[in-house]
Amino acid sequence: MAKIFITGGLGFIGSHVAELAVAEGHEVAVFDNLSTGHRSNVSAAVTVFEADLRDAGALDSAVGAFRPDLISHQAAQASVPKSFLNPEQDAEVNVLGTLNLLESARRHGVERIVMASTGGAIYGEVPEGTVGRVGGPERPSTPYAVSKLAAEQYLAVYAHHHGLQGTVLRYSNVYGERQNASGEAGVVAIFCQTLLRGAAIRVNGRLTSGDRGCVRDYVYVGDVARANLLALGGHLAPVFDVGTGTGTDARTLAETLMSGVGVTAPIVGAEPRKGDVQRSVLDGAPLLDALGEVTPLGRGLARTFGWYQQTQEAVLS
């Protein structure tokens, strides 16, 4: 079994990676600034270092103290709108923070880093009838996409010059339990919480207000965690697409959620959002081949809604 260090390990995806790693018998430590994460997201078996990725000294101290074999790098500034509002902070976290981690990994003899990246933002607008994939066109059009692509390339440099093994996971739109209901990436969380409030679901248009909304490739967080553990074991390609190959527009997403959980609400149209990619779908074959099966959207949405429902009931009780 290995010692695994997870940045952003108290957050949405990172905590699921930590949970699965512990279940598989690994020794796990997480590094998190608690900007969106919560200590309750991981068990007492997990060592917690509370600090910011941009604090090179604190990060190096944590890596040096834990002495990991493997690192799962999930911490990021992951909001496209925020990357436009504050591109400097986006680069500080995603580029300079990643460099801090790579330097610590080099100094302390880490074997492999698995880095969470973004297929949706890097591939940009994916034309109808096609999918974004490794080796295909890259159309980064946001500060967030540029910073994540730069981080990927820094990892490749460290692999080439310092022998640090690395795997990049290019995520599509990840959803599931513990997701923060903020920003477009949290649309499933937003819809779940909207239903629980008994309010109308708002769907931002793709081209005009009132249309069916932008198309996204929704992948369940449990499948993403499984892909991360395979990557940490060195079983995936150096750059790997984590998506399902199926596009779902926002209105269909809302309808599928309501149908699966037996709760209904009106759907109202809203204006398109600035900077939104209209269609983003990744190649689903790599993930399916690696996992054998992926979680169907309806099943994943039902699990996610059930978690938010239980969480709300716990708060109210």
Rank of each mutant, 00 (worst) to 15 (best):
residue 2 A to C: 04
residue 7 T to N: 07
residue 9 G to W: 04
residue 9 G to R: 07
residue 10 L to W: 10
residue 10 L to N: 05
residue 12 F to T: 09
residue 16 H to N: 13
residue 19 E to D: 15
residue 20 L to A: 14
residue 22 V to T: 08
residue 23 A to H: 07
residue 29 A to T: 00
residue 29 A to P: 01
residue 32 D to Q: 02
residue 35 S to E: 09
residue 35 S to Y: 04
residue 36 T to L: 11
residue 39 R to P: 03
residue 40 S to A: 14
residue 42 V to E: 08
residue 45 A to G: 07
residue 45 A to V: 05
residue 46 V to N: 06
residue 49 F to I: 00
residue 53 L to I: 14
residue 54 R to L: 07
residue 55 D to L: 10
residue 56 A to E: 15
residue 59 L to S: 03
residue 60 D to K: 12
residue 60 D to R: 14
residue 60 D to A: 13
residue 66 F to L: 08
residue 69 D to C: 01
residue 69 D to W: 02
residue 73 H to F: 11
residue 73 H to W: 09
residue 75 A to M: 03
residue 76 A to P: 07
residue 79 S to E: 10
residue 81 P to E: 03
residue 81 P to T: 10
residue 83 S to L: 02
residue 86 N to L: 06
residue 87 P to V: 00
residue 88 E to W: 13
residue 88 E to A: 15
residue 89 Q to P: 00
residue 91 A to T: 11
residue 92 E to V: 12
residue 92 E to I: 13
residue 93 V to D: 08
residue 94 N to R: 01
residue 95 V to P: 00
residue 98 T to L: 03
residue 99 L to A: 15
residue 102 L to I: 11
residue 105 A to W: 05
residue 107 R to H: 06
residue 107 R to N: 03
residue 113 I to G: 00
residue 113 I to K: 00
residue 114 V to I: 11
residue 120 G to F: 14
residue 125 E to T: 08
residue 125 E to I: 02
residue 125 E to H: 14
residue 126 V to C: 01
residue 131 V to M: 01
residue 137 P to K: 04
residue 139 R to D: 07
residue 139 R to Q: 08
residue 142 T to S: 15
residue 143 P to R: 05
residue 143 P to L: 02
residue 144 Y to W: 06
residue 144 Y to R: 00
residue 145 A to G: 07
residue 146 V to R: 06
residue 158 Y to W: 10
residue 158 Y to A: 10
residue 160 H to N: 10
residue 160 H to V: 09
residue 160 H to A: 15
residue 161 H to I: 11
residue 164 L to H: 05
residue 164 L to K: 03
residue 164 L to R: 05
residue 172 S to V: 00
residue 172 S to I: 02
residue 177 E to T: 12
residue 178 R to V: 06
residue 181 A to N: 11
residue 182 S to G: 02
residue 182 S to K: 13
residue 183 G to T: 09
residue 183 G to S: 04
residue 184 E to F: 14
residue 189 A to F: 11
residue 191 F to C: 05
residue 192 C to A: 12
residue 198 G to L: 09
residue 201 I to H: 09
residue 212 R to S: 14
residue 215 V to N: 08
residue 216 R to K: 13
residue 231 A to L: 04
residue 231 A to M: 05
residue 232 L to H: 02
residue 233 G to D: 13
residue 235 H to I: 02
residue 236 L to W: 11
residue 237 A to Y: 01
residue 239 V to T: 10
residue 240 F to M: 13
residue 241 D to G: 07
residue 242 V to M: 07
residue 242 V to K: 02
residue 250 A to I: 00
residue 253 L to W: 01
residue 254 A to K: 03
residue 254 A to E: 05
residue 255 E to T: 13
residue 256 T to N: 02
residue 256 T to H: 00
residue 256 T to K: 11
residue 267 I to Y: 13
residue 271 E to A: 15
residue 273 R to K: 14
residue 274 K to A: 15
residue 275 G to S: 08
residue 278 Q to P: 04
residue 280 S to V: 08
residue 281 V to I: 15
residue 283 D to G: 06
residue 283 D to Q: 03
residue 284 G to W: 03
residue 286 P to Q: 05
residue 293 E to N: 12
residue 293 E to F: 08
residue 296 P to I: 01
residue 297 L to E: 01
residue 298 G to H: 03
residue 300 G to N: 01
residue 312 Q to P: 01
residue 314 A to R: 11
residue 315 V to T: 12
